[in-house]
């Protein structure tokens, strides 16, 4: 029995791996760490699947679309007996982003998040994080703004190649 269950779980994970993030389409929702768990109960006709997801930021406008895209992919695969649950706890963190995801981000021109560090505390005027330019790999960069084009990004500029770039900020 567990073997069958695992099979289903694996199949669902494979389907979810094809769902892209609408705002950063090079990342899948698995790269982002949005999918927390796939649970299966019962067997055969009574098999029920629960997919548990969590938002990146409370106001992330992509969440509604991500839910819809998950439903579309599962519908295409003929999967019907499932529930899609959104949980808030534990709160999402950039530490859940996959290594592969970080590489894809960099190749796309967005600096991937550093591991969580002191910038996640309320202390003022903190030393900026050393963020590597995704284009020329220089570490001589500076922050233009802690808030960027989407909730999850900050705006940086490279002091060597002079290109401005997005940094997927640690959270």
């Amino acid at each position: 029995m567990p073997a069958i269950t695992n099979d289903t779980v694996q199949k669902v994970w494979d389907m979810l791996a094809t769902v892209a993030d609408p705002e950063v389409p090079v990342l899948t929702i698995l790269d982002l760490g949005i999918v927390r768990e796939v649970k299966v109960s019962g067997t055969g006709e009574n098999e029920k699947i629960e997919i548990i997801i969590t938002p990146t930021y409370s106001g992330c406008p992509a969440m509604d679309m991500i839910r819809m895209n998950i439903r579309l992919v599962l519908a295409e695969e003929g999967l019907k007996n499932y529930t899609l649950t959104t949980v808030l706890s534990p709160a999402w963190t950039t530490d859940w982003m996959s290594e592969e995801g970080k590489q894809k981000l960099k190749a796309y021109g967005i600096a991937p998040p550093n591991p969580q560090q002191n910038v996640c505390t309320p202390e003022l005027f903190q030393q900026e994080e050393a963020v590597q330019c995704p284009r020329c790999e220089s570490w001589h960069t500076h922050r233009i703004s802690e808030f960027g084009s989407t909730a999850c990004k900050a705006l940086y500029q490279c002091d060597d190649c002079r290109e401005p770039f997005d940094y997927f900020k640690c959270h």
Partner: peptide, 14 residues
């Protein structure tokens, strides 16, 4: 402008 609208978005999500 972007910072404040980002903050708005967070608050709206909450």
């Amino acid at each position: 402008d972007i910072a404040l609208t980002n903050i708005s978005l967070d608050l709206l999500g909450q």
